[in-house]
Each structure stands twice: as C-alpha cells, then as structure tokens.
Design a protein around this nucleic acid. Sequence first.
DNA 1: AACGTTGCCTACAACGTTGTACAAACGGTG
DNA 2: CACCGTTTGTACAACGTTGTAGGCAACGTT
Lengths: 335, 335
Amino acid sequence: MRHRLKDVAERAGVSVKTVSNVVNGYVHVRPDTRARVEEAIAELNYRPNLSARHLRKGRTGVIALAVPELDIPYFAELARHVVTAAADFGWTVLIDQTGGGREQERVVASGITDHLIDGLIFSPLALTAEDLASLDGTPMVLLGERIDHGPADRVVIDNVGAAREITSHLIGLGRRRIAVVGSQRTDEGASARLRLAGYADALRAAGLDYDEALVAPAPAWHRADGAAAMRGLLTSGVRPDAVFCFNDTLALGALRALHEAGLRVPEDVAVVGFDDIEDGRFSIPTLSTVAPDKAQIARLAVELLANRLDGDRTAPAREVSAPYRLEFRESTQTP
Amino acid sequence: MRHRLKDVAERAGVSVKTVSNVVNGYVHVRPDTRARVEEAIAELNYRPNLSARHLRKGRTGVIALAVPELDIPYFAELARHVVTAAADFGWTVLIDQTGGGREQERVVASGITDHLIDGLIFSPLALTAEDLASLDGTPMVLLGERIDHGPADRVVIDNVGAAREITSHLIGLGRRRIAVVGSQRTDEGASARLRLAGYADALRAAGLDYDEALVAPAPAWHRADGAAAMRGLLTSGVRPDAVFCFNDTLALGALRALHEAGLRVPEDVAVVGFDDIEDGRFSIPTLSTVAPDKAQIARLAVELLANRLDGDRTAPAREVSAPYRLEFRESTQTP
DNA sequence: AACGTTGCCTACAACGTTGTACAAACGGTG
DNA sequence: CACCGTTTGTACAACGTTGTAGGCAACGTT
C-alpha cells in the first residue's frame, strides 16, 4: 500500500539513488530527470520512511519535551511554545509526561532517550545532577531549574530575583503579614526553595521578620493544594494581609479558599502568583503574577538544542537566562 | 558510545540473534546463556534501537495524539488520560498540536502519519470526511465529533443529548431567556452545531421560543472569546437570565464579563459550561457543567486503536460512545 | 542401532534509506 | 582529435534489528 524509493525509481525509469537525490534536493540532477521523478513521486504519493532514514542518517527530526504534568496550565502553555519554536527548525515534538517523581523522571530521561529522538528538552522537578550524569548520549536541555552544575545546557529564570520583586511589591502596598503558599521541604522542590529564598530576602530588606507560621507547604502545586494550604493558614489563626503563592494554580486555589472564608481580595488579603497562566487573566479577581517569557524560554531551549546537535557535543554546558516581568492585576490593586 | 546487539553478543560469546531472542523474551534459551547475555546487557547498558526495530518489524510502539490546542485545558486533560491509557499497552504517545484549521489538520494527519507512528488518535475541528478518505495507511481513531460517516473508528459523546439535558436543567430552574455562547457558522464547528441542536431541542420541548438574538457566536473557544461574546450579548440589550456556554473556557470568560458588568451569578444569570475542566471546580463561582468521562474516552480510543492494529485493518469502522454526567455547582445553584 | 523429536543456537537475508565509489556521457580546450 | 574536468547517473554496502531456515546435540522411541 505504501510505496518505497524503489517503486518510484521503477516508475520513473531511474535508479533508487537518483530518486533519493531528488527527494533530498541534491543539485546534479538534470531538470527533465528531476521532473520525471517528481511526477512519479506525486503519482504514487510517495513519502519517505523516517525510520529507515533515521537508521541511515542518525537523525529523526523528532525532539522530545518532558514535563511533569500537562494539565498544569503552565506546562501546557510552555509545550505550545516549544512546539511552535521547534517547527522553525523542522522538528516534530514528542511530548511526554513524567509525573514529576524522581524515579519516573529517571525512567523517562533514560528511556525516551533511547533512540527515537534527536534531543530532549526536560523540565525536571526532582531529578538530581547525579541522575543526569548517568545519561550518556542524547543531547538535553533543562528548563527552569538549576540542578546544581549538571552536565546539561539549561534555560533558567531568576527565581530568587522574581520572588524578591513580587514580595517587595506586596510590602510596598503596605502589607506586613505576608504568607507563602507552596513551600516544599523535600529536595524535589528546587523552585520552591529558590522562591522562598527570594521571599525571605525581600522581608529582610524591608526589616520584617520571617515567620514560620506564615509559610504553608503544598505537596503539589494544583488548585486543590492551594485551596487546602490557604484553608490551613486561615484556620491556624494567623491572619495574613497578603499571600505569595509559588504558582498561579496554587493562587487560584487560594482565591477560592479566601472567597469561601468570606475574605475580600485584595481589600483584606492581597494575592500574587507565579507563571502568568491564562486563567489568571480571567479569574475573579484577576491575578497579579510573575510572568516568565514562555515564548522566549521555549525559543532559547530549542536553540540550545540545535546548537548542541549541530556543534560540538562535548563543549561545556551553557546556561542562558530568560526574562520575566511582573503583571499587576486586580488581586493586588484596589479598584 | 551507544552499544548494539553485536557488542553484547561479542561480550557474551553468543550470536547476535541469541541476544535478540533474550531481549524479546524468546523461550528457548538456556538459563545460563540467558544469564550471560543479560549480564552483558547490563554491563554495556544496552538499549535497543527503535528505528531499526521499526524498520524490521513495521511497528514503532509510538502512537500520536493530535489535538487543536494544548493550552485549552480540556485537551490537556484529555492528553494526560491518553498518555496513561496508552502506557498500559506499552505505547509512547507523541502529542501534536494542529492549531485547528482544516489545512493544518490535513498536514498533520497526512504528515505525521508518514512512518514514525503505529497509529493516530485525532481530535479534529475542521477536517472533513473527504480529507480523511485521502489518508490511506495508518490506523486512526477520531475523537469527539462525528465527521459524517468517514472511514475511521470514532469515540463520540452524545453532544445533542448532553446539551439538551443541561439546557433543560436551566429551564427547570425557572430560567426562560437562555442565551448561548459559542455558536459557529462555519463547517468547522461540528460540536457547536450539535450542542446548538440540543439546546434548541430543549427549548422546543419546554415550549420556549428560539431567539436568534440570544445566540452569540465565538470564533474560537478561549476565555477571551467567551468574555467578548458575553459582553456583546449584554450590550446588545438582550437580558438573558441564563447562559449555556459551549465549553468551560468560554464559560469562565463569560463569568468574568458578567462580573465586570456587575451581574451576580447565579442570582441574576445562571451559567453552565461543557467539559468539566479543573478550573471550573475552583472558579468563583464554581461552574456547573457537562462532564464527559475523559478517562473513558481516552481508554476507548486507545482500545479501538489497539484492535485496529492487531486485527483486521479493513474491517468496517466502529463507533463507540463514552458516557457523560451533569455536574451542578454554584453557577446554577443559589446557596 | 537407527530414527525422529525437541531444545538451543547460528548464519543469512531483509526492512528502506543514504554515503561512497565509480562509470558514462558531455562539453570545452590544446 | 585526444585529453581532461564536470555533470549525471548507477551499484553496492551499511545503519541495527528480527524472521527464516537450518545445524547440531541430547534425548526417547522403535
């Protein structure tokens, strides 16, 4: 049913290699030969077999993007941008969910890596530099977090700086009892640690005390976790006048919990998130947040991967930084 | 750097094929030979080359899922379920965004199909039965919509019935001026047409008039479109007491627009959506909606594909139906 | 003792493609 | 007209894997 180079060659009356040359745009093919071959290709609706091509050339034209969870909007939006950026390089993107656990991430990183793909863009939650070191072979670009100094290229954003700035914004509004939602004790929460550090920095700079009671952990960063953490804070008796949630989905959950408790946002409690997902632009109230430039993150990641693929695979790992900006919306601004 | 069967074979002192047999779990291999081979595999960290395997076997172990947009939460959630269901069959899922236009969908359907994948699960917005017919080869399962009677297997939900039920629910609440957000005139909106039909059915059954002025079109089904359509309805002077949005993101946008207009939900206007995305469980107010069983849709799709791959490829196309239920939340219930 | 039968393993070819080496045809030059 | 370089095409091998055919022991059966 499916045709091969050989079929096209027979139909056009040339050798298999000549058809291959036409398909690959090789120059030295007489115009009339080329025309005959192209006609045969069209008639048979020939399409190259990518597996065979890969086997021969060592390239598939497919890269993978591994993220913890697709139904966390931040990763879905990021995935969209990566797909778009990769298209400019002629790549198809295979998207994979890791689930976020260390073991699962190891499996994906080593398993996916196998042979189908040319490279991997990886957004790890729990993977350690040690795990990475054991992954020889496929070029990889890490997203978002610093796994100390592992061997791979990375695109990072300044988590500490961003967290400091958005916390300072809350302080600038006159808020003094600023709670945190989303801290994580485990090693898995690199983002959480960095954002907490930025928060603490900002408090210190403003001469405010760091109060452990205001820091609410969240096992994962879904809406439900945010709502639960916020309820926990409220019932514990602490009365925050602002909340810094470590991502937007946590913040949306927190908004919900505040609403249920009858507290007004931002009048009673100001709320900020992190990620700038689309939901936050339509929530009630709309959500102030740190907006990492996702398109830029995606583009940088794809470019790093392209450089690595075309260039020196043993060159030292590069780290590039993507910009962010703060978005001030209703959740911190009285109308 | 990467090892092949040959390397393992040399190390274990057996033939290449024997190693292949061990890898594939062939029975007739003496235990001690098997042990030797497995040891060599472990030492060299051998991993099979999937391209070569595919070239030889005609199977990749990869299926593709093509959806219009990943940052529409419904599709992200669906993707997650498909990945999970596919894992049970030992498949990796390659996720692709089509963008939703007819031409783009054709490109994806025919292009992706090429050779890397065993099968395709496709959620089309605009593709016609005609387009599909021209895609020979790769088995395909269509999701969600009925492209008349095309040649492919499908998983559908009863859009008309679900729309009728949720509209009837609104009527049962005493609402009489029920608006619609999300209608589409083009051929692209199969869902829109079916849901509109269900809406009209329910009105008719209740003896209510169908009023064109209450039907607001939406070019796409994002939050922004829902907000714009709702604003349009409000400024046009019609005063709906309920709104049926054709999906949840539209509904979230509509909630926003109603909030900005100072209208209370559900007291002044009841709102329902369709899809049951996570956002709707945390929005303010929480959103009543039609909840298709996404896990079931995903499982059925993967099973259909598996049957098609293992069984008769020329058997007539099958159509299976996935269940849904109604979720009543705050947006239709006064506390 | 001769004969299958079974278990275990090997050699070879093939999947569809492209790089390499080379042959044939062509055109221009001395 | 002999020579040479360029253009255009071909044949062959190889990428890493698995299906097929078959060989060789070891065993039980006649």
